[in-house]
Design a protein around this nucleic acid. Structure first.
Lengths: 219, 219, 219, 219
DNA sequence: CATGAATGAGGATTCATTCAT
DNA sequence: GATGAATGAATCCTCATTCAT
């Protein structure tokens, strides 16, 4: 009866500073993370309704009840999973380190390829990106929505720079183009995870996509 | 003897000839259709798992049990709904009547606009198009999958003609381009139904999309 | 709205005398009988709870609803079936015609063989004879019970004559012996219908049974 | 991990060694047994179809859902009940302890009296012995059938010894006689439980039955 | 009379959540 | 902290019975 903050999504226990975690706290924190990982897998593969709490706990290697020490319930677990996921995804797409790409087209391409790679290992994101999961849960954490908008804005920024530099055509509708590119981005990232033969995600297709976007934008 | 065909998805009763349906049969047929409509709405809005049989029956204005005279269960109801939906969608996208478009670009544009319009009134399709529903039901009617492939093939055909006629660029990867276009098509058709402010579907966006595709393909 | 007597079990409609039945009444009477036959088969094979009204009606070749013109419900249908069955069985066991058997042992043997033969074609009787069906229906027509007692009494009568004539041993407990014989009689009659390999009913077994009873009774 | 073995019918939990069962496991095991007891009563008194899961759970003093932690469903519960019942019955009929009866007739008599006594407190067995329940459940545990055959074989063995020792008549049809005796045995055991006035089970009747069988077999 | 479509109460089953240990 | 046995509300489905045609 100690943590149970249940309010926000504290990655770690209510420690004040970074150290001073006994072995117990550390072990606990590790279990919390295992639950989140398992939840992401299950929600991603089955959807919210079809994923069973029991399965998630089993996959995490913890008991059914422990889950309720960390999260208020299935619903809040879902919310936390989504928030963490979106945060990780953003970090992958726009890595802090590394040199900035030399051209705007290269920036878009990098973003696309990074994102596809991320989704290959994160089942849940595709579902969120296609915005279906939103329907499954009324009180959906709007973190996801805000982050998606942020991405569109970011893309629009890149496009604007490209237009100004003459790299992209001048009469581009920035908002719409950013929307379309974000959408394509989400789609093929989704496929990268799903690996269904009907919706393949081959390197050739990815190359074609990059080319497609490039041609549509070029001056 | 009841009806209880349960096998395929006969739109009308097992009448031998075209007429001779008493008021009873007619009324019954209408109820079957109302159930299908209600089911499409519910599945589309809530997903398979979250849609309750009771709700579907209530929305259709019939009793809980009547549903089971027409369908083996919730699952088969879903399958039939999907099949009908896909069939209707195909008819909308490729209408038999009317003159063939004068250019390949125009053909693509017509397809896109038709489909978007269709989705505006058919909640379920977006979910199928984004291929999420597939995960929700093991024994998913493969009609949907086959039809989606048919669409890609159709688009590829249009593209091929365009390439041959010099309308589109010669080094186009037909398969990949058809895939991308079909995907965009599905995405924005989906949005047309959802009407969520975060993922809008304005006429401007649609115009931009048409232009985007056009630019990406042009010779 | 004509027959619906529903009270007792009139084999035919409420005709006052034996003739004067129009074709309609005759046809109706035939359907009633077909329902009874089908019901006997279904109840016999599946038991009361597992037999569906719909199945019975279908087997009788009539509609679901017609059944309720003749009988108050599933329950009363069962009662009527039982009464008719018991009556028929009694007629088979103790046929009016023919010469009386020359010995008491012969009388018992005839009864046994007749009864076994009857059950071969009347599925329900075995269930009643083993008195299990009684448990399945609270307000069971006591006709069956009374008839079974009648049989025991009849057997006791034969035994008494046999004792007096010196054919059977003098210290026989009449009531108990009659009970045992009736019970055996019911058991093997039941088997004759069931035809299950684990509980066979071969001619040899029947012969052995006759011999068994004979040896147990002989003076 | 729960328990959910669901496979066979382990009387006790999957403990590795014989002890080390916490109070929880013990309590759980007790509940499992209470469910089995209640199920036996309900199935025995009402038959498979008419017995409600809810009633069984209520009689066992547990919730509706707990039943499904121990058994796959109503059907498997029935199967387990039958297997346990048959096993217990066998133990009662052929107790390991005690001296072997001095004569074959005495052996038969002991078997009969033991079995009658057992049925007095085990409602379900009569139904199984009369082989009616088999009809009620397709995938009936064949344990019952095998055990019944075992009993017949056992009886036949006793008879054979009796014939060889000259206690029983030499021209006895062993198989048929064993069948008849087993049948009588089942019948009166059944009555012992039912306690219905129409089919009484008095000590006198039991004595008469023993005498009846004895007379039928004697040399 | 005859039909069979329609009803809805009743029963089996699932699964998120709690709580005694 | 951690467990997992226990709960029971929620949901799918069945089937006896009714009634408009």
């Amino acid at each position: 009866m100690q943590k149970v903050s249940h309010e926000s999504a504290p990655t770690s226990s209510d420690r004040v500073d970074g150290r001073s975690q006994g072995k117990r706290q550390l072990e606990s924190e590790r279990k919390r993370q295992r639950i989140l990982d398992a939840a992401q897998r299950c929600f991603g593969e089955l959807g919210f309704a079809a994923a069973k709490v029991e399965t998630i706990a089993a996959e995490a290697g913890v008991s059914n009840g422990l889950l309720y020490q960390f999260f208020r319930g299935k619903e809040q677990l879902f919310e936390v999973v989504v928030e963490e996921l979106i945060r990780d995804w953003a970090h992958t797409m726009f890595p802090r380190t590394g040199d900035p790409p030399e051209s705007c087209a290269a920036a878009l391409e990098a973003m696309l390829r990074n994102s596809v790679e991320f989704c290959r290992t994160h089942p849940l994101l595709p579902r969120l990106l296609t915005a279906d999961a939103v329907l499954e849960l009324e009180r959906f954490s709007d973190v996801a929505t805000r982050r998606l908008e942020a991405q569109r804005t970011h893309v629009a920024g890149i496009l604007e720079r490209g237009v100004r530099s003459g790299e992209f055509r001048a009469d581009l509708d920035l908002a719409s183009a950013a929307d379309i590119i974000s959408q394509l981005h989400a789609d093929y990232a989704a496929r990268a995870y799903r690996r269904r033969p009907e919706y393949p995600m081959t390197p050739e297709l990815l190359d074609a996509l990059v080319r497609f976007v490039h041609d549509a934008l070029r001056a």
